[in-house]
Measured scan of single mutants.
Amino acid sequence: KLATQLLVDLAEGCHTHHFNSLLDIIEKVMARSLSPPPELEERDVAAYSASLEDVKTAVLGLLVILQTKLYTLPASHATRVYEMLVSHIQLHYKHSYTLPIASSIRLQAFDFLLLLRADSLHRLGLPNKDGVVRFSPYCVCDYMEPERGSEKKTSGPLSPPTGPPGPAPAGPAVRLGSVPYSLLFRVLLQCLKQESDWKVLKLVLGRLPESLRYKVLIFTSPCSVDQLCSALCSMLSGPKTLERLRGAPEGFSRTDLHLAVVPVLTALISYHNYLDKTKQREMVYCLEQGLIHRCASQCVVALSICSVEMPDIIIKALPVLVVKLTHISATASMAVPLLEFLSTLARLPHLYRNFAAEQYASVFAISLPYTNPSKFNQYIVCLAHHVIAMWFIRCRLPFRKDFVPFITKGLRSNVLLSFDDTPEKDSFRARSTSLNERPKSLRIARPPKQGLNNSPPVKEFKESSAAEAFRCRSISVSEHVVRSRIQTSLTSASLGSADENSVAQADDSLKN
């Protein structure tokens, strides 16, 4: 292990032709098999893994070397290190390495390699500790012929580059190093199909959405987006994914797998022009299946994007999809995704031109529960009313008269009656009930004795009459309010007539 670390330190600071010789020695160290011998017992696995620490030291050392060589000349050094790393990870899946030390190597290698970024000039870069990406002036992410390196360097940008540029090249004859992302992409596909350690798979799935944002990485080298989509959909639809995973937390289920895969599918929607129609349908189907899991909100957001990006695919699945959405409970976490999906859909009339009455009724059935102001915040309630109004205007004229009683009944049950079921009123009724029952229970537990009763009969009569009056008032709060309003209006009217009579009498006395 110490000798391997010494080789790594020497290679990191070497800029001459001896660098390749040092890498040859490190490569021989990495070539050791990580498969346990067949006769190895389970209690000896930890000791055997400790004997392979030099392999881990070599791989982690290459990660440090690549981070240094990416910004220094010659660029061919970075290319050689990158290829060695990718080849080593491929061996893991070729020979099915399952030892804990092998999983640790893959975890740290993917953690580093999935941080690679590219700008519009195809320059590769890595983020620093502050998250700012520094791009290399010597390494690009696409394949290029050595003699055409300078031509590639002087080509115009596709868009303004992001991030601070690296140091300027030493001279005009500098050759750019090619670090094609397709090599890593193929290893990522192998990981999605064969990885057995949940920690490694979770890391890859968590980092892929951010990497897919940099389309330069994908399009400048032959990366098959179709295969990526197929691998992701197979993970969700195939039963073998959960069987092969180990190291998963207790209670791990298909729902947890959906939570990890759906963000990658959402990021892949922007590549729909490069996906086969069959793959697009598979993607939409997987998102529909996710509606029954805890990732339902993410799936609804993804389907909203699909309705804009892939209208030809979503239009066929939309009638059944809208009916499925009615089975989702009206909760605060689902309110905004569902209502925004319906609001977006209302502005795309070509998608729902074939809707029948059942689909329009489903839209109103989804939106009406969110009009309850005692359960949802003001934004959700306003958005629900907006969706109902928009869809009522957009639905066909023959359907409107049939939906009017349905909508008014839903609004009455969710908006008007919600004020009668407020917690304050319920607590008031509970308190009044307890007050009504309390005197009775006290009389049963403690019967009054005439000799020891010091309270006069008049006081008892007053208290009983007050309790009886309170019971009468607490029967119905709404009736009490109505009666008080009527009494107030009658009182004001009587006072007004009394004032008029007094004024008339005063005038008569003055005349006399």
Rank of each mutant, 00 (worst) to 15 (best):
229 C>E: 03
97 Y>W: 06
232 L>Q: 00
50 A>R: 08
132 V>Y: 11
244 R>L: 05
247 G>P: 05
234 S>D: 13
100 P>G: 06
125 G>T: 03
206 G>F: 08
183 L>N: 10
196 S>R: 12
192 L>N: 00
252 F>H: 03
158 L>P: 10
91 L>W: 06
216 V>N: 08
248 A>D: 04
219 F>Q: 09
54 D>P: 04
249 P>Y: 07
97 Y>E: 01
217 L>H: 04
116 L>T: 04
94 K>V: 12
177 G>D: 04
131 G>M: 04
135 F>D: 02
111 D>N: 09
156 G>T: 11
76 S>P: 04
151 E>D: 14
192 L>H: 00
103 S>P: 04
177 G>F: 07
147 E>R: 11
91 L>Q: 13
197 D>H: 04
71 Y>S: 03
247 G>V: 05
158 L>V: 12
65 I>D: 01
165 P>G: 09
176 L>C: 10
95 H>F: 10
211 S>M: 12
144 M>Y: 12
191 C>F: 01
190 Q>G: 05
120 S>W: 08
231 A>D: 05
104 S>W: 06
250 E>N: 11
92 H>T: 00
175 R>I: 08
127 P>H: 04
162 T>P: 11
176 L>I: 13
229 C>Y: 02
190 Q>N: 11
72 T>S: 14
59 V>H: 02
74 P>A: 03
88 H>M: 01
184 L>R: 01
220 T>E: 03
124 L>W: 05
238 G>I: 06
229 C>L: 05
129 K>F: 07
190 Q>K: 11
152 K>D: 13
207 R>K: 09
192 L>Q: 00
126 L>W: 05
52 L>P: 01
101 I>Y: 02
208 L>N: 01
69 K>Y: 00
237 S>K: 07
247 G>Q: 07
115 L>C: 13
79 T>H: 06
124 L>S: 04
239 P>G: 12
130 D>C: 07
234 S>K: 13
208 L>G: 00
200 V>I: 08
76 S>L: 07
122 H>T: 03
184 L>C: 07
86 V>Q: 01
106 R>G: 00
228 L>I: 04
92 H>N: 01
124 L>E: 02
51 S>V: 06
125 G>Q: 02
126 L>S: 05
78 A>L: 02
81 V>Y: 00
245 L>D: 02
92 H>I: 00
97 Y>N: 01
147 E>V: 12
215 K>L: 02
188 L>E: 01
195 E>C: 00
243 E>S: 09
71 Y>N: 04
196 S>H: 12
106 R>K: 02
239 P>Q: 14
59 V>Q: 01
122 H>V: 01
248 A>T: 11
141 C>E: 02
84 M>W: 01
189 L>I: 13
228 L>G: 00
247 G>F: 08
57 T>Y: 05
115 L>M: 10
145 E>H: 08
92 H>P: 00
247 G>T: 07
252 F>C: 10
206 G>N: 11
201 L>N: 00
252 F>Q: 02
98 T>F: 07
230 S>Y: 05
116 L>K: 02
68 T>Q: 12
102 A>S: 07
186 R>V: 06
176 L>H: 12
134 R>Q: 08
79 T>Y: 09
240 K>C: 12
128 N>A: 08
71 Y>G: 03
138 Y>S: 07
226 D>Q: 05
242 L>Q: 06
163 G>S: 12
202 K>N: 08
183 L>P: 11
51 S>F: 04
101 I>E: 02
115 L>F: 08
221 S>P: 02
65 I>C: 04
56 K>L: 06
145 E>L: 11
213 R>L: 05
234 S>T: 12
181 Y>L: 04
145 E>Y: 10
160 P>S: 13
91 L>M: 12
217 L>G: 03
221 S>T: 04
215 K>A: 04
62 L>Q: 02
226 D>N: 11
71 Y>I: 02
132 V>I: 12
135 F>G: 02
177 G>R: 05
161 P>G: 10
194 Q>G: 05
68 T>A: 08
140 V>F: 08
180 P>E: 04
212 L>F: 02
95 H>P: 01
160 P>W: 05
251 G>N: 09
101 I>A: 04
211 S>A: 12
59 V>F: 05
116 L>G: 02
158 L>I: 11
70 L>R: 01
134 R>W: 04
79 T>W: 04
203 L>P: 02
58 A>V: 01
90 Q>R: 11
250 E>H: 10
191 C>I: 00
208 L>Y: 01
99 L>P: 01
74 P>N: 03
80 R>S: 03
132 V>S: 14
118 A>F: 02
230 S>P: 01
218 I>R: 02
233 C>S: 04
243 E>Q: 11
67 Q>V: 02
199 K>W: 06
87 S>Y: 07
96 S>N: 13
198 W>C: 01
150 S>W: 13
123 R>N: 04
178 S>Q: 09
53 E>Q: 06
160 P>V: 11
212 L>C: 01
159 S>W: 10
191 C>E: 00
